[in-house]
């Protein structure tokens, strides 16, 4: 018998051959040192591969996947329960305050209402004042821009087009000069 194919060796190692094939291979291995060495080599490879440590799954991975599959949505009963418990604590707190303050329940509720009302009314007054101030600023700016526009209109009626053009050029020149002047002033001491 000629030497074993590499595929035969692997299938033999994995127990994938029938009894007849297995017997023939065993017989050949008993007389062929080369194939025995190849067998040992292949066996080592498969054993090493099978013994590789498994990749770890981090703790909480299952919960993470479940969290993606079923995002938490509180049921209506849970919401109602939370609201009931919350209300209970608020009422209990109010009762304790009432007992320790020594006031009658009526007076306590009146003072509580008054405090809330005063706080709200102060905030309302402050808001109203701010709105009034903003309205005043807008009014002044509007009037000022109106006067400016009117003056400019009157001036263009008095002056001839040539003088107007001259004034525009003069204004532009002054603006450019100021711009260049400021720039130089700012660059003093810097390398050119």
């Amino acid at each position: 018998m000629e030497c074993l194919g590499a595929d035969q060796i692997y299938l033999y190692l994995e127990g994938e051959l029938n009894k007849g094939e297995t017997a023939v291979i065993k017989e050949h291995l008993s007389v062929c040192p080369g194939c025995r060495k190849a067998l040992a080599d292949s066996k080592l490879l498969l054993q090493t591969a099978s013994s590789l440590p498994a990749w770890d799954v981090p703790p909480g991975f299952t919960q993470q996947v479940m969290g993606h599959l079923f995002p938490f949505r509180p049921a209506l009963s849970q919401v109602l329960l939370t609201a009931t418990i919350g209300s209970f604590f608020i009422i209990t707190g109010l009762l304790f305050t009432f007992i320790y303050s020594g006031q009658s329940l009526f007076n306590f509720l009146v003072s509580l209402n008054r405090t809330i009302f005063e706080g709200l009314s102060s905030l309302t007054v402050l808001g109203a004042r701010l709105i009034k101030l903003a309205a005043l600023v807008v009014k002044v700016l509007y009037r000022f821009s109106g006067y400016l526009w009117e003056s400019f209109g009157r001036l263009t009626n008095i002056l001839s087009p040539e003088v107007q053009a001259g004034l525009i050029i003069f204004t532009l020149f002054i603006s450019a000069s100021l711009y260049v002047g400021f720039k130089r002033k700012l660059l003093v001491g810097e390398k050119r």
Binding site: E2, C3, A38, L45, T48, L52
Partner: peptide, 25 residues
């Protein structure tokens, strides 16, 4: 590789430890 006669050349194991063999695999 086509299906071939078993390789009788140098052994893959040589003289490696199991941990080294695992790394190589």
């Amino acid at each position: 590789y086509p299906i071939q006669i078993a390789d009788k050349g140098p052994s893959v194991s040589k003289h490696y430890e199991l941990s080294q063999l695992r790394e190589k695999v």
